[in-house]
Nucleic acid binder design. Sequence first.
DNA 1: CTGAAAGCGCTTACAG
DNA 2: CTGAAAGCGCTTACAG
Lengths: 342, 342
Amino acid sequence: MATIKEVAKRARVSVGTVSNVLSGGVPVSKRLRERVLEVIQQLDYHPNQIARSLKIRQTNLIGLIVNDTRNPVIFDLLRGAEEAAWRANYMLIVFDTGDKTERERHFVSALRSRRVDGMLLIAAGSSNHDHIAAAEESGIPVVCLERELSGLNLDCVVADASSAARQCVNHLVSLGHRRIGLLDGDPNLETGGRHMSFRQTLEEHNIPYDRALVIHRGLRLEDGFEAGLELLSREQRPTAVLAANSLLALGFLNAMKKSGLTCPEDIALIAFDDPIFAEMLHPSLTAIAHPAFEIGNQGMELLLKRIVDPGQRRSKIVLGSKLVIRESSGSSRTRHASESRP
Amino acid sequence: MATIKEVAKRARVSVGTVSNVLSGGVPVSKRLRERVLEVIQQLDYHPNQIARSLKIRQTNLIGLIVNDTRNPVIFDLLRGAEEAAWRANYMLIVFDTGDKTERERHFVSALRSRRVDGMLLIAAGSSNHDHIAAAEESGIPVVCLERELSGLNLDCVVADASSAARQCVNHLVSLGHRRIGLLDGDPNLETGGRHMSFRQTLEEHNIPYDRALVIHRGLRLEDGFEAGLELLSREQRPTAVLAANSLLALGFLNAMKKSGLTCPEDIALIAFDDPIFAEMLHPSLTAIAHPAFEIGNQGMELLLKRIVDPGQRRSKIVLGSKLVIRESSGSSRTRHASESRP
DNA sequence: CTGAAAGCGCTTACAG
DNA sequence: CTGAAAGCGCTTACAG
């Protein structure tokens, strides 16, 4: 692989001059520039970005650490991040922690060794975020996506889970539901107050909050299935359920099927994100239109801004969500008998 | 950010010694080693991998270039690749070309500048792969995934599309279909002979191949929709359709809906991959279980092997696929009238 | 075992 | 404009 030295030799100029025609910072006479460019062509020279990074202390690399690529909306987020990165000439190193803190810790450390210019993070569910704090303090900017890390004061961009929860509860209550379940993720992670808002909105409707109808588990399909079976085994099972994401919703649907129940007749269902296939499910999924692309996109923008200006104030961007009503919430049907229970 | 020099100074040893305790290659006395390790702890020292890469000419970075992250199976593939990379201490730089050759060309070039140790590639649809050939010749190994690049003799791992096509056609013919459509991707890409096998299997059943029922377009949902409308407007429309992936299938389902047609009653449908939601669609999707995880996983293994031994023979790995029969192919229903046409 | 030194391929003041 | 040279932070023969 050709080096700048070889290019310089063949073009009969100094390496500095080659560097100057490449970077365009310092002007180079037309004659030399053309000579250099021609040699670069001939040699199919690709400047060694590693050497460059070492020198200028900048890698144009961003680490993107996500918690679960099984969740289809993650891809929208990735695409959003990539789009912003592309425009700024950055590249993405991507990881999936599978929500395991040890893996996250390992990746963050590896990313620090690689001197990425910044990190985008969907934190794994865990109460210990020392490694994130350490990374920040060492000078590498990190912006949190989807989940806010309590106590860390980082840039973050999240969806408005409070508003989302409120919209869901209002919708379900308006359909006559009073026993509403919630399948949520790790309670240690701030997700914009989904749980809190859920509870509060219920109480505004004078519906007592029933702790037994809330299950905090993972966010995978299997978690939805297991939590679903658990919820369905309650003596007073819910007549409607909110699932923190569509994967949980799919899992819950499986649990219902296994229990011989149908949706929405027996139990209505709403998910907190809206993947491409939601409309084609059976029943089609009432869902919150989750702004995953925007979260990735604005997260990256925010990160790039902080890289340029590390001193700027921390910001928290909250993106609106809106309810897309389809069949699974049963809105078009009359409520069935179980609704009229006390 | 601490450097090896600072660590050496504080531990009162040479930088070479620090390097030796880090790498473990050259033995270091227990006394010095412990002193060094302690300082590393204190300083929260993260060895600069950039400098290391420059010196040892190895980045432990792999470029993964995919054609469309909208396709949910891509994520399985990514996870497969990541799993193998993780075990070998490699990291992934990920790109989405959106099937645009200019983007692919740009990324390949950027990746060469970054001196990645190898590339995993789902090629964009295009007949010109000079940039890939150039990368290979310059000494960076690339293995092709999902699509074989004709004329390039690269390592590749693909699903057995021939067998898949054969299984689909056999299944549909056994249900009485004789007018079978195919929604495929770019014809310039070898996908293991899906199209060819489709045609051949039809002919084995003495069913004339009808060029008008085959549409080569992109692989996105929109492509499925548009190609679907086109197909449905044929004077003799098909009674069954094969879609090259589930995104196309979703698009086609949309086209059917828009045309007032239902699946499988009016037209049966099979997709060539099997995403997590296939079972929950309405109708549930008969599909080929596409080994995406394995393709990513074995692709990465193959790449790592070639990195270690650049001289080894090129291999082509073909992974089996098998048909998962659900509702959309209409297997459980009796065929309707249109079937009995000549 | 340990240290001093060269070198990986760039960029960037600094002289001219 | 152009070139010679120092230096980014490591690794690795080479002496001792």
